[in-house]
Amino acid sequence: MMPDKIPIWKVEVVTQNLSYLLAGLEMTLVLAILSMLLGVLLGLLIAAARMSRFLIVRALAGFYVDIWRSTPFLAQILWVFFALPIVTGFRISAFAAGIICLSCHASAYLAEVFRAGILSIAGGQRHAALALGMTRMQAARRIILPQAVTRMLPAIGSQSINLVKESALVSVINLQELMWHAQTLAGFTMRSIEVLTAAALIYAALTYPQALLVNYLHRRFVVNS
């Protein structure tokens, strides 16, 4: 079966409504940047908790990481938006649900990145630093962290890419980011070919430079170390 007529690409549908798509892009950027910042902060706390000396703290932090990493993001966003308000009694906005979910999700993955980065250095080098008379803080600051941080950079970059891609899913709770704007515009103009392709290209334009940066950081800091 062939289509009635070969579809003609009407790029002007996108160019004329570009400001509408860009409004969605703005929300996507706000979501990605804010969640990344919160995710890094929360991830540091969780990583520290996972290396705590107390078993109960370690176990709780481990459970937190496993829950966020072993369930689909879609299940998480629907749970936070629809189920959490029933537990707490507070209704939350789609924006709040999106930020909570994206940053907690990112924090679980980032906590593992931080932990793996620190563990990859700790050990012999830490003992050597302590043997040279450094305090534990000095060893961490001068020996372990500088090496660990550079090794973590590519993995942190990958998480940032994932966050941008995952943020498209919050459109299911009607949080009006790029994907929501694209689907709405596609429905409104009946030109899903151009609009959805444009959305895909905008996402690629957001993440591809990050991917190149990750590759560069990987070559620079991981492979050569």
Binding site: M1, M2, P3, P7, I161, V164, K165, E166, S167, A168, L169, S171, M179, A182, Q183, A186, S192, I193, L196, T197, A199, A200, Y203, A204, T207, Y208, A211
Partner: peptide, 26 residues
């Protein structure tokens, strides 16, 4: 590979579900 790795899966799924039939007629 780059296109599929840099765009969200949701976009790919919706694109293949709605755009591909318009382009191919299938």
């Amino acid at each position: 590979t780059e296109l599929f790795r840099t765009t969200p899966l949701l976009v790919q799924v919706v694109w293949i579900f709605t755009v591909l039939p318009l382009m191919t007629g299938v």
